[in-house]
């Protein structure tokens, strides 16, 4: 668990996943190959039902019955582990615990250091003043920040974010995107974000992985070589957005362009 061993590179090879639905089966993911460097921020976009959440859950170790390999650093993933943190779409804070107890919930040993670690994490997400609050007293954005603190307290090599801001309002979402970027710059954890928001994917990712639907396959990987913080209305940003957009809606877009 030392710093030297912190190898947060992720390699996915020939990943297949089928679901049994009734008598038949549905191929959720087909031939997924991905290599993610340590410290990289990867966004995965896809329409709903494309298997992007399933991919994330496989990496988290929550799914089984797939073929292919997932390796984090030099270890093969075969189940959940503290080397991977996970942020779900809902905050999943335990309503009967306070904010600090929720963050400490991720710590399984009981050491005198716990208190300090929790305080540090709450500082990192800017919620030191809410340590004693209960989840129902927090706004959606605040609750999600507590969830981030909880996921990071074990210093995972890889943080998996499953549409983490999808349930938030547009303004809070932008704030949280800036927040996660700031945290990433401090912690340098490898990040893997699943989203259906193209803007969010470009704003955050070093690369944007486009997943096609049914079966989910990697359609394209678009590098985003723009300095951060990124300006969503800059020419380059808009170009990339257009590029990704046409991957999803290429047929529908064309007649519109001719009309102009």
């Amino acid at each position: 668990m030392g710093v030297a061993e912190r190898n947060g590179s992720l390699v996915i090879e020939e990943l297949h996943k089928k679901f049994h639905v009734g008598a038949g089966e549905v191929i959720a993911l087909r031939d997924i190959n991905l290599q993610i460097r340590e410290g990289e921020f990867i966004s995965i976009v896809g329409s709903s039902g494309c298997g992007k959440s399933t991919l994330l859950r496989i990496i988290a170790g929550l799914e089984n019955g797939h073929s292919g390999t997932v390796r984090l650093g030099d270890r093969r993933v075969s189940g959940p582990g503290l080397d991977r943190g996970m942020i779900f779409q809902e905050h999943r804070l335990l309503p009967w615990l306070t904010v600090e107890e929720n963050v400490a919930f991720a710590l399984n040993g009981r050491t005198p250091e716990d208190k300090r670690l929790v305080r540090e994490q709450l500082e990192l997400v800017g919620l030191s003043g809410f340590a004693r609050a209960h989840p129902h007293q927090l706004s959606g954005g605040m609750a999600q920040r507590v969830a981030i603190a909880r996921a990071l307290i074990n210093q995972p090599k890889l943080l998996l974010l499953d549409e983490p801001f999808g349930a938030l309002d547009a303004l809070t979402r932008i704030q949280m995107q800036q927040e996660i970027l700031r945290i990433w710059e401090v912690e340098r954890t490898t990040m893997l974000l699943v989203t259906h928001d193209i803007d969010e994917a470009i704003y955050l990712g070093d690369r944007v992985v486009i997943l096609s639907s049914r079966p989910g396959t990697v359609k394209r990987i678009v590098p985003v070589e723009l300095p951060r913080p990124r300006d969503r209305s800059s020419y380059e940003f808009v170009q990339i957005r257009k590029e990704i957009y046409t991957e999803f809606f290429h047929e529908a877009e064309k007649p519109f362009a001719y009309a102009i």
């Binding site: 929550l62 959940p80 582990g81 999943r92 919930f105 399984n108």
Partner: peptide, 12 residues
């Protein structure tokens, strides 16, 4: 959802 969370966090 809390069962899953506990699995991810390897809660004893």
């Amino acid at each position: 959802k809390f069962v899953e969370l506990s699995r991810v966090l390897e809660v004893p």
